[in-house]
Structures are given as C-alpha cells and as structure tokens.
Amino acid sequence: MSTSVDLSSYRDQHFKGSRSEQERSLRDSTTLYVGNLSFYTTEEQIHELFSRCGDVRVIVMGLDKYKKTPCGFCFVEYYTRAEAEAAMRFVNGTRLDDRLIRVDWDAGFIEGRQYGRGKTGGQVRDEYRTDYDAGRGGYGKLLSQKIAPNTDNR
C-alpha cells in the first residue's frame, strides 16, 4: 500500500547521475520541492508553515531566471528525514495563501536550480497553462502572448 512519504512518479530530468542513484538520493534526502505556490507567497510564510514540522535548515525560493522574482516554487531543507517526512504527510496537498501546494522529495539543492526552466524565465508549466491563475501571473505565457500581443511588453 502506498503512503504519503513514498517517492512520487516525478523525476528531475536534469539530475546528474543514473536513475538508481537519483532514487537513492531521493530516499535519503531531507530536502523537499514545494510547488504550486503563488508568486506572491513569501519565504516568511513558507517558513511559518514548514517550521511546524521541525527546524528548517534553509529555504531557497524559486526565481524567474531573468526577472529574479519569485516564480511559484521553492526548496525547503530540514535537518532530519523525520521532519521532512512530517511535511510530506501533513503539508502536501493543504493550503498556503489559499492554494493547494505540492510537496515532493528533492535530491538536494544545487546552485542554479533556484531558477525557472521555462523559455520566458519562469516555470515550464506556466508557459503552457490555458487557465487564468491570478496568483501565477494570469494566463499561461504562450496564451497571453496570443491574446494580447501588444500589452505584454511592460
């Protein structure tokens, strides 16, 4: 039977190493990826929520590669596996800033990973989205270019 602390099916394609090495690091990791955050959610809010599972070692906010502003994800590292597991169990799928946030294991933060990997600088998912999401810059980047090509140059 699956539990809340099992590895999800997502694998970071940029991981340097074999699939089994990747899974081993995920299994030993004390770092979490946190996704579906609002662009406006601050590090302080994340700290408040995640420190309820244990002492947070470090939070790395995900930033737009070009604008250097938050782009809706972050990494949270704890001191122990048990604390990280608590966050997987009790925070994943609950609300922060009125959004259901996603918490998943991460193999550990490496410099450069704090930046969005999309062409426009943010996360890839925000380029292809077709819905309107006020917390993540409105429509997806591609769609909003089509809708209003002249107003997106601010």
Binding site: R52, C53, A86, R89, F90, V91, T94
Partner: peptide
Amino acid sequence: WITLNYGSILV
C-alpha cells in the same frame, strides 16, 4: 504527536 498532525486530520 505534533500539533500539525492533528490539524491536518481535522482539515
């Protein structure tokens, strides 16, 4: 158990 455990169940 930790407070958040109970809270998450009630949520």
